[in-house]
């Protein structure tokens, strides 16, 4: 029962903040709405017995990525135009999107499985063991990806004369 209350709260906050993200005029408010979405998503991760991912979500997304976003918004200073624009193309796209979403939600409601009590080891210890044994190669590859992304970002964002 308490789980249902928390799920309802977090999901309502997430959907409301997501709509606020796409409808705000000022990109700074969009960024703040995205932080709210991410925080409620972390709450949902906690409900799904994955505290490690909830913490990573807060630290990496809400902490690092969104701080980067806010810094870039500060440097770019985009104009506050009331942009939500509906031309013919986006109307047609919106209708197609609505149909796809309706069919997808209708087919998901056919799934009636329910959660069974947790009997697998979902501890941080077990996740770390998997990362450093059976998933060692993807982990190292992701390290290479991060390094190349940082070097590339520094290269393309540098001043020309330097």
């Amino acid at each position: 029962m308490i789980e249902a209350i928390f799920f309802g709260f977090f999901s309502l906050v997430a959907v409301a903040a997501a709509f606020s993200l796409i409808l705000q005029k000022d990109p700074v408010y969009s960024a703040l709405s995205l932080i709210v979405v991410i925080a409620s998503m972390a709450g949902l991760f906690l409900l799904l017995n994955s505290p490690l991912l909830a913490m990573l979500q807060i630290i990496i997304y809400a902490g690092a990525v969104m701080a980067l976003f806010v810094f870039v918004i500060m440097m770019v200073d985009p104009p506050k135009i009331p942009t939500p624009s509906f031309n013919v193309y986006s109307r047609v796209a919106f209708l197609i999107l609505l149909v796809i979403a309706g069919v997808a939600i209708w087919s998901i409601t056919k799934v009636t499985d329910s959660f069974t009590p947790l009997n697998a080891d979902f501890s941080v210890r077990q996740i770390s063991r998997s990362i450093f044994t059976s998933h060692l190669f993807p982990f190292e590859a992701i390290g290479m990806l991060i390094v190349s992304a940082v070097v590339g970002a520094l290269y393309i964002a540098r001043k020309e004369e330097a």
């Binding site: 249902a4 799920f7 999901s11 986006s90 919106f94 939600i105 998901i108």
Partner: peptide, 29 residues
């Protein structure tokens, strides 16, 4: 709460993102 609820929530958020791509012109958004 069943897995289907989480899937529907995930789908709603995904399509909200797609809708945002359609109606916004700002690169950052």
């Amino acid at each position: 709460i069943q897995p289907a609820h989480y899937l529907i929530l995930s789908l709603l958020l995904f399509f909200t993102g797609v809708l945002g791509i359609f109606i916004r012109k700002n690169l950052l958004v």
